[in-house]
């Protein structure tokens, strides 16, 4: 579904991604784990078109999206739910969701609202409320709901569990599995490697802009190396 081949991405003078290649297959949950500054968020930003690789290629659904605009990429169903939620705090929950469906023709809008509200009943309760007044967990649900409104074929999730209480983290991971079961492929960036490896099919480990390890999530979860470095035991 997504094939990234040998991309090099620079942040000014910093060489953030070095000759990086990954692949995501239809129907998978793939997780990227790695320390802060390993380049996980940079990779997602490059996939959604916010950053452009200097060299290398990105192919999505058989077509090159390497130099396409963010808008064109979103239109093809690659949707990026950014780190830190980034909800439009000055707008209502409903308006936020509506913006998620910005490129949809509006025919499925009612059904999409219903789907997101059934997934996140809390959002329905608060649909007229300003997004800025929501709790952290609710904002994360809103950010994910907003991304789902755009009919993602591939959903990029950047740190969805960041800063949330443990119980909420469980909820969020459960929802990711549900979204995946409903047919959306997921590329998940997580600090919480333990949880991420539990729900993912495959994983890539990033270190200073390179893929240093890849494999089945369950295998990686058992590997001594990963346990030492990322799972804290």
């Amino acid at each position: 579904m997504l094939t990234v081949q040998g991309i090099n991405v620079y942040y000014g003078a910093i060489h953030a991604l070095k000759d990086l290649s990954i692949q995501v297959n239809q129907g998978e949950i793939v997780t990227l784990i790695g320390a802060n500054g390993a380049g996980k968020s940079t990779l997602l930003k490059t996939l959604s078109g916010l950053l452009k690789p200097k060299t290398g290629s990105i192919e999505f659904l058989g077509k090159s999206i390497t130099n396409q605009s963010v808008q064109a990429i979103v239109k093809q169903g690659l949707i990026h739910c950014p780190e830190g939620r980034r909800v439009f705090a000055n707008m209502s929950v409903e308006e936020n969701l509506e913006l998620g469906a910005y490129l949809q023709d509006g025919k499925s809008l009612a059904a999409d609202f219903e789907r997101v509200y059934s997934m996140f009943p809390r959002l329905l309760e608060r649909k007229k409320q300003q997004a800025g007044t929501l709790s952290g967990g609710e904002q994360q649900m809103l950010a994910m709901g907003r991304a789902i409104m755009g009919h993602p074929k591939l959903l990029l999730l950047d740190e969805p569990s960041m800063g949330l209480a443990p119980l909420l983290v469980q909820d969020i991971f459960k929802i990711i599995q549900e979204v995946n079961a409903a047919g959306t492929t997921v590329l998940l960036v997580e600090q919480n490697a333990h949880q991420a490896l539990k729900i993912a099919h495959r994983a890539y480990v990033l270190e200073t802009g390179r893929v240093v390890l890849e494999g089945d999530a369950s295998e990686l979860a058992d590997s001594e190396e990963i346990k030492m470095a990322y799972l804290g035991h």
């Binding site: 959604s48 916010l50 963010v70 808008q71 979103v74 239109k75 949707i79 990026h80 739910c81 950014p82 980034r86 909800v87 439009f88 705090a89 000055n90 707008m91 308006e95 509506e98 913006l99 998620g100 910005y102 490129l103 907003r146 755009g150």
Partner: peptide, 18 residues
């Protein structure tokens, strides 16, 4: 709505396809 979104967070607005 797009105007309000862009003025609040331009990058997030772009990710909506605006």
């Amino acid at each position: 709505k797009a105007m309000r979104a862009v003025s609040f967070d331009m990058e997030a607005a772009r990710l909506m396809g605006i």
